[in-house]
Simulated scan of single mutants.
Amino acid sequence: MSQRPNVILRGGPSVPDTERVLYVPDPTQRLKIFRGHRYEHFEPTPETALHAGRKLLVFTWSGCTYVAE
């Protein structure tokens, strides 16, 4: 069963707008998203944002790390 989105991502160079609203099982933890050859890291904030009538937690981009070859 699909979970309802609870997070919106802010910032970061390589995450398309269509992938910025998502469900995160533990919204108190740092989020790491694989994007090709690197991971984009997002940190939870105390902010919320209204999106499509729903209040979502805001995560902000904190940097990236590259996958070792």
Rank of each mutant, 00 (worst) to 15 (best):
V15M: 15
L9F: 09
N6W: 03
K32A: 15
L9N: 06
H37L: 10
R35P: 00
P5E: 10
P27D: 15
P44E: 00
G12I: 03
T28I: 01
L22H: 07
H41F: 13
P46E: 13
V15C: 11
P13N: 12
F42G: 03
T28F: 07
N6M: 01
G12Y: 03
V15S: 02
R4I: 06
S2D: 10
R10G: 00
S14M: 03
R30L: 07
L22K: 11
D17A: 14
P27C: 08
P16W: 04
F42M: 02
R4F: 06
R20Q: 07
H41Q: 06
K32V: 02
T18V: 13
P5L: 02
V15H: 00
L9A: 04
D26E: 13
L31Y: 04
V21Y: 09
L31E: 06
V24Y: 14
V24K: 08
F34P: 08
P25A: 14
R38H: 15
P25V: 08
L22Y: 07
H41Y: 12
H41T: 09
T18F: 07
L22T: 08
P27V: 09
E19F: 14
E40T: 08
E40F: 08
G36V: 04
Q3G: 09
Q3D: 13
G11V: 04
P44C: 05
M1V: 12
H41I: 09
R30N: 12
P44D: 03
S14D: 15
P44F: 03
R4L: 11
E43L: 11
G36N: 10
L22Q: 13
V24M: 06
I8D: 00
P13K: 11
F42H: 05
L9R: 04
E43D: 12
F42S: 01
N6L: 02
R4S: 14
R10Q: 11
L31R: 05
R30S: 10
Y39G: 04
Y23R: 07
T45E: 06
F34M: 11
G36A: 13
E19P: 01
E40H: 13
E40S: 11
E43W: 02
S2A: 15
G11I: 05
H37E: 12
H37G: 10
Q3N: 14
N6Y: 03
T18L: 14
G36M: 08
R35I: 15
M1S: 14
E43Y: 04
R38T: 02
Y39N: 12
